[in-house]
């Protein structure tokens, strides 16, 4: 019980601190490294919520795929000039105040409505074996969204090639 709580707070603090570092670093490569750290912490939270398959997908797809793509683009686009420029735009104060107001609203609602989430939780082993359950749901109930997602990936691939190609 104590170990569960300690792990949750460890991963939560790690994710939040890394996220704050992502949006404040001057160098985009540092931001990418801290984003990797935040994504790994969120993968730990998935693992703690007994979503093993999703944690593996998070590590392989996000950290292994998307972040490598980010780093490649950071190296392709010359960011040496951008490091020396002003990092925040003119509306930053208004933006922070607005976002914090929204956060306070959501946090107040969650704090006041804490009892609303206390309905009896399902037994924890109902999601096990996890990969098998997720696979069955994907290929039985969610077959059509799965196929649409594959078409979306095809469109994104063609779009990226068209965008990045110098001359068609």
């Amino acid at each position: 019980m104590l170990l569960t709580q300690a792990l949750f707070y460890f991963f939560a603090v790690l994710a939040v601190v890394s996220a704050i570092l992502v949006i404040t670093r001057r160098n985009a490569v540092h931001s990418a490294i801290f984003l990797i750290q935040a994504l790994l912490a969120i993968a730990g939270i998935f693992l703690q919520l007994q979503a093993e398959f999703l944690a593996a997908v998070q590590v392989i797809l996000y950290v292994g795929g998307i972040m490598v793509l980010f780093l490649f683009v950071i190296m392709l686009v010359n960011l040496d000039i951008a490091v020396r420029q002003v990092q925040f735009n003119r509306q930053w104060l208004l933006a922070i105040v607005t976002a914090l107001v929204v956060a306070a609203e959501v946090g107040y609602g969650l704090y006041r409505g804490k009892e609303a989430f206390q309905f009896p939780a399902a037994s924890p082993d109902i999601l096990q074996p996890n990969a098998q359950r997720v696979g069955l749901a994907l290929f039985q109930n969610y077959m059509l969204p799965f196929e649409i997602a594959s078409i979306l990936l095809l469109v994104a691939m063609i779009g990226a090639v068209v965008m990045a190609k110098r001359r068609l």
Partner: peptide
């Protein structure tokens, strides 16, 4: 985390 993301979208230039 959502709020941090929103602040990042709204304030950064890069």
């Amino acid at each position: 985390l959502f709020t941090i993301g929103v602040i990042g979208v709204l304030t950064r230039r890069n």
